[in-house]
Amino acid sequence: MTIKESQDRIIEDFAAFEEWTDKYEYIIQSGEDLPPMDPQYKTDDNLIRGCQSRVWLHADFKDGLLHFTADSDAQITKGLVSLVTTVLSGQSPADIADAELFFIDAIGLRSHLSPTRANGLLAMLKQIKMYALGYKVQQAQKN
């Protein structure tokens, strides 16, 4: 599935929800479904400091694709982190670097990307883009 397709799928899921509580149930459940992060990666180096909640992010580069594992100490942030890694994990650095993440806005959680919210999600997205750009440049140099 492409990055766009997985985003469209999330948006489709959310379109079915009538109550705000359904939306949050889905997000929180996504967080719970996130595979536990290997404790060896839950280090200060991998910690993205948001103002209130914390996010850990680890990137693995294998066979030309980037894989992300992540965690957060806040359940809603963790749910969004889970959705983001679902959308972006297993894609090529070039695709990730070029991707436009429109689904967060589309499901009505744009406030989570506001710099004043400072919950770590925005910083995590920036970090993901940095990894992708880094590997994209590295690959371009190899070729």
């Binding site: 705000w20 949050y24 209130q52 909640s53 100490d73 806040a74 359940q75 809603i76 942030t77 919950n119």
Partner: peptide, 13 residues
């Protein structure tokens, strides 16, 4: 053991 931001966001809703 909930994070206060989660509680705050759900109350805001």
């Amino acid at each position: 053991n909930s994070h206060p931001t989660d509680v705050g966001e759900l109350l805001d809703m």
